[in-house]
């Protein structure tokens, strides 16, 4: 049986793509990491976020319901990631320095997204 030249090229292209793709597409997914709030003196729960792989680190925060939460961004957080928002709690604030923070009291249980104002850095706030 005579194989057409074009068919042969198509087959070779597919073999090349599949073969090389199998080797090169072994990626690492988005990293997930968790922080539990530091209860401090009991007046508020303190969380300090930094940046790793162009996202907030840690990007999952667990806090307790009913106790005020303060979230700080350390000096590794730059650009639009300093503009911190949690839509479900009406938080939207530009934290200019590492000493600035957002404070709110989580009054409902569940998982809520936090993000920078442009949505480039995201994470989950778990209220227990």
């Amino acid at each position: 049986m005579k194989i057409k030249k074009t068919t042969l090229y198509f087959a070779l292209i597919i073999i090349l793509i599949v073969g090389v793709g199998f080797f090169m597409l072994k990626g690492n997914g988005l990293e997930t990491n968790t922080a539990v709030s530091d209860n401090g003196n009991g007046d508020f729960q303190k969380i300090i976020l930094s940046v790793k792989n162009l996202n907030y680190y840690p990007n999952t925060i667990t806090v307790k319901e009913g106790i005020p939460v303060r979230i700080y961004l350390d000096s590794s957080v730059t650009g639009c990631l300093r503009s911190f928002t949690i839509r479900d709690f009406g938080i939207a604030k530009y934290l200019k320095t590492p000493n600035d923070y957002v404070e709110f009291t989580p009054n409902k249980k569940g998982s809520f997204r936090f993000a920078c104002s442009m949505g480039m850095g995201t994470g989950t706030l778990v209220v227990e």
């Binding site: 090169m24 597409l25 072994k26 990626g27 690492n28």
Partner: peptide, 11 residues
Amino acid sequence: NFIPKYGFFLF
């Protein structure tokens, strides 16, 4: 980490 970091986009 050449393959995990760059493999996909280079491919």
